[in-house]
Design a protein around this nucleic acid. Structure first.
Lengths: 153, 153
DNA sequence: TCAGTAATGTTATAATATATCATTACTGGA
DNA sequence: TCCAGTAATGATATATTATAACATTACTGA
């Protein structure tokens, strides 16, 4: 939180109650959070929120690299390394939806190299790896092998 | 198209008019297509389509690996190598939205290795690299550098 | 203090996606 | 050929995710 505060000061912007609260909510969840779940929580706290309230706040937090969006889950998760610029990769458990953030230089480098070889000037890398986490591998549901192709929600 | 046909026969399922037409539409577009754009096209062709018509067909084509979904664009694109099982990476131009499909074994291997190192049993890799394609690099819009963080739509 | 801007409130609506049940069309066996 | 069973599609409704546009409030710095 102090880091978030510091980043806001540095960027000459305000770390308001709303922004702080949303960041807390995202951080306190052990899984990526959906925008409308945040909305509901804020409403329960009598914060009189509407969808734009949430999406604006999420945009702010994304812009200042305090959170990430997991595209394949349409969900938002805290950034583990807010103070250093980095490119993340996400390991997503298909069963419990827990997410691990990697900051793997090797993956980053290989992707960068191959993309540039193809002539692309890179803006952003989205790397989301869906699978079963160690815990869910042992507690499997019915036992059948998981189909590799599916919509991830 | 013959390959699509063959794949359906092999999987003991039907390559109906609807499925064929949707696949044609996706293939004939040089960019990833949105579901509701497909819907509109089908309706213009007097095919009397509703959202489930399109999404069911997309699910079918995804399941049989005839198309891919680009998560960060919420759009669908033809698969360049439908007959061989593979893991794709996508190079997406932020400006013209053109997409190139890579099937890069090195990226695949590095990601697999690092993910397994973290204990994940992999189901699927989503790798989407946003940038500027060679053509759009020369025809830049106003000249300013592009912000690295944004919502990709 | 007050003007300018940043942030939030408010209303409405767009865009994406799925659930459910009804109907039609194909397939394979009697 | 006909019929039963299943695959595919039709149809209606609704859920979920996200943004546009304008009004109001709250902070900041001269």
């Amino acid at each position: 939180m102090e880091k978030a505060q510091a980043i806001c000061i540095e960027n000459n912007t305000r770390f308001t109650h709303l922004r702080k609260r949303v960041l807390e909510l995202i951080w306190s969840s052990h899984k990526p959070v959906l925008a409308y779940d945040l909305l509901e929580t804020l409403r329960n706290e009598k914060m009189n929120a509407q969808p734009p309230t949430v999406y604006r706040t999420l945009d702010f937090l994304l812009k200042h690299r305090l959170i990430h969006k997991i595209q394949s889950l349409k969900a938002y998760t805290g950034c583990d390394f807010p103070d250093q610029r980095h490119i993340s990769q996400f390991l997503i458990c298909d069963q419990c939806h827990q997410v691990v953030e990697l900051d793997d230089p090797l993956i980053k480098q290989v992707i960068s190299r191959q993309a540039r070889k193809a002539g692309l000037e890179i803006i952003h890398q989205t790397v989301e790896i869906l699978g079963l986490c160690p815990n869910c591998q042992t507690n499997r549901p019915q036992g059948g092998p998981v189909n590799a192709i599916r919509n991830t929600r």
